[in-house]
Amino acid sequence: MRKKKIEWPVAPAAHAGAGQCGLCGREVQHTSRHHLVPREEGGRYGPVVELCQPCHSTIHLLLDNRQLARQYNTIELLREAPELQVYLHWVCRSKVERISNRRPRR
């Protein structure tokens, strides 16, 4: 069975307005700034996008900074990341504002 294609909002701005997540497009109460190229990989002054807490946490749980810098350094590339597809399919239909997923200890 094929999954239904997700309809993304029209290109969100780098600082998506009052509470819109730049990744999932949901209206949320709080967003946080995500550096598309992580600061540790040279993106301190690079482009940023406002993300809801579940999206921000999940990105950093499933992808490391090197992957983010080299493979997924735009919002469009993040939306197409195979590692995020199951999550995005779920969160776009969800009303969740906060999740607690922790990085595994190494």
Rank of each mutant, 00 (worst) to 15 (best):
R2K: 13
R2I: 03
K3V: 09
K3C: 04
K3G: 14
K3W: 07
I6F: 03
I6P: 05
E7M: 06
E7D: 12
V10H: 04
V10T: 15
P12H: 11
P12C: 08
P12E: 11
A14C: 09
A14R: 15
H15M: 12
H15Y: 07
A16K: 09
G19H: 05
Q20A: 11
Q20I: 14
C21M: 04
C24P: 12
C24V: 08
R26A: 11
R26Y: 07
R26L: 14
E27G: 06
V28C: 08
V28Q: 04
T31G: 14
S32D: 12
S32V: 11
S32N: 10
R33K: 12
H34T: 10
H34I: 12
H34P: 07
H34M: 10
H34K: 13
H35F: 13
V37F: 03
V37R: 06
P38M: 05
P38D: 13
P38C: 08
P38F: 05
P38H: 07
E40N: 10
E41Q: 15
G42E: 14
G43D: 10
G43W: 09
G43E: 14
G43P: 06
R44E: 13
Y45N: 15
Y45F: 15
G46K: 08
P47Y: 04
V48A: 05
V48C: 06
V49M: 06
L51N: 00
C52W: 05
C52S: 14
C52A: 10
Q53C: 01
P54D: 08
P54S: 09
H56M: 04
S57M: 03
S57D: 06
S57E: 09
S57L: 06
H60E: 05
H60K: 12
L62I: 01
L63N: 00
L63H: 00
D64K: 07
N65I: 05
L68D: 01
A69R: 10
N73V: 10
T74F: 02
E76T: 07
E76C: 02
L77V: 02
L78C: 02
L78D: 00
R79P: 01
R79L: 02
R79T: 02
R79H: 08
A81S: 05
A81Y: 01
A81M: 04
A81L: 08
P82A: 08
E83K: 01
L84Y: 03
L84G: 02
Q85N: 11
Q85A: 12
V86S: 11
L88M: 13
L88I: 13
L88C: 09
H89D: 15
W90C: 09
W90A: 13
W90I: 06
C92H: 06
C92I: 06
R93N: 13
R93P: 07
R93C: 07
V96E: 07
V96S: 06
E97C: 05
E97F: 07
R98C: 13
I99L: 08
I99D: 00
I99G: 00
N101V: 12
R102D: 03
R103Y: 10
R103F: 10
R103K: 15
P104S: 11
R105A: 10
R105F: 06
R106G: 13
R106S: 13
